[in-house]
Amino acid sequence: MEIYQHDMSALFEQLGLGSSPEEIQAFVKNHRHSRDSTPIHEASFWTASQSAFLKQAIEDDADWVELVDQLDVMLRDE
């Protein structure tokens, strides 16, 4: 089994989003939402393919899952 080390920039690239630190920070700022029980992949701002990727990463406990979890925390208002 291969284990890949991804970073947040790679996750944003995988999602087809700008992946510079400034672009990531802007995305998080513009899409921050309240802490509720909505799963990250069901947030209204994702495209269908982005949502499917996030859902699959979580369901498969893929090597992306830790970054998806980290992004989920970043997107939730405190």
Rank of each mutant, 00 (worst) to 15 (best):
D72A: 14
F45N: 11
A62G: 14
T47P: 08
L11P: 05
I40D: 07
D36R: 11
L54N: 07
Q25C: 04
V28A: 06
E42F: 09
E66P: 00
M8A: 04
F12S: 02
I58L: 14
E13D: 05
V73Q: 11
S44T: 02
V28C: 10
A52W: 04
D36Y: 00
E66S: 11
W64N: 11
L17C: 01
F27S: 10
F12E: 05
S37L: 12
M74R: 12
K55D: 15
M8K: 13
D63S: 08
Q14Y: 01
L11C: 07
V65K: 09
E23C: 04
R76A: 08
L75P: 13
E59I: 00
E2A: 08
E13K: 14
K29R: 12
W64F: 06
L15S: 09
Q70K: 08
E66V: 07
A62K: 01
S51Q: 11
A10H: 03
T47A: 15
F12V: 03
Q56Y: 09
E42P: 00
Q5R: 12
A48P: 01
T47G: 13
M74E: 14
G16Y: 06
A57S: 15
H33M: 04
Y4G: 02
F53D: 08
M1N: 06
E42Y: 08
F12Q: 06
A52Q: 12
D77M: 09
G16I: 03
W46F: 14
T38E: 13
E78Q: 13
V28L: 05
A52Y: 10
E22W: 01
E2P: 15
N30Y: 00
A52G: 11
I58A: 11
A43D: 13
M8V: 05
Q56W: 06
I40E: 10
S19Q: 03
S51Y: 06
E22K: 09
D63C: 05
L67M: 07
R76D: 10
G18N: 05
L54H: 12
E66D: 10
V73Y: 10
R76H: 15
S37F: 12
F53Q: 09
V28Q: 06
S19A: 15
E78F: 07
I58H: 05
A57Q: 06
A48E: 14
K55T: 12
F27E: 10
V28H: 04
L67F: 10
L67A: 08
Q56A: 14
S34H: 05
H6Y: 15
V68F: 04
H31T: 02
W64R: 10
H6A: 02
S9A: 15
L54S: 11
D60K: 14
L17E: 08
E2D: 15
H6R: 12
S37Y: 13
Y4N: 09
K55H: 13
V68L: 06
D61G: 03
S51G: 13
Q5K: 11
S34P: 00
H31R: 05
G18Q: 04
D69Q: 07
S34D: 10
D61A: 08
T47N: 13
Q14T: 03
R76W: 14
L54C: 09
S51N: 06
I3T: 12
A26Q: 14
Q70H: 09
T38Y: 10
E22P: 01
D77P: 00
W64P: 00
E22C: 03
L71R: 04
